[in-house]
Design a protein around this nucleic acid. Structure first.
Length: 155
DNA sequence: GCCAACGTTGGC
DNA sequence: GCCAACGTTGGC
């Protein structure tokens, strides 16, 4: 099993928006970065666990946990002319963008702030805290995942 | 709102 | 294939 971190702007879509969805599940549309796409297309497998991260907001940090419930398939928004994610170079026969579905697992009682992640020497090598890192879908090491979930999470 | 870091585009 | 110009991300 693998572990991941996915960013979302909570003003757009927060962890509680995920919780309130039908089946508490959401298709992760709109990722338009090749590296992030490759992770979703090739490596994210059913039941992998995902940290749900809130970015560009007041309380920046890890808000909770989700899991992969459906593996790679083409992102429908790339074919939708009315979508802001429409991609004229993508075709049904040759899609460019892929995604997965995630399901809500838990919301942490308190957001684990980015500043705390940065302070933890156990997380020195975590991708998220590296300078210039901005991937919106990124792998997390098992050790890092457990440390954050067990040591930094209040509940 | 600023700006550093990164990714993409397109001319050559 | 290089690289300047531009666009985006995202913390502060």
């Amino acid at each position: 099993m693998n572990y991941w971190l996915m960013k979302s702007e909570p003003d757009e879509f927060s962890i509680n928006d995920l919780k309130n969805k039908k089946n508490q599940t959401e298709a992760w549309t709109g990722v338009r970065n090749y590296q992030a796409r490759n992770f979703m297309r090739d490596e994210m497998k059913k039941n992998d666990l995902v940290f749900f991260y809130h970015s560009s907001c007041k309380e920046i940090g890890i808000a909770g946990i989700a899991k992969v419930v459906k593996e790679s398939y083409p992102d429908p928004t790339q074919f939708d002319k009315k979508s802001k994610y429409f991609d004229p170079k993508a075709t049904e026969d040759n899609p460019r963008w892929f995604l997965i579905d995630i399901k809500w697992v838990k919301t942490f009682e308190e957001i684990i702030p980015l500043s705390l992640l940065k302070e933890s020497k156990e997380l020195k090598n975590m991708y998220l805290v590296q300078k210039g890192s901005r991937l919106s879908v990124q792998p997390v090491r098992e050790k890092e995942f457990d440390f954050i979930k067990d040591q930094l999470n209040s509940k």
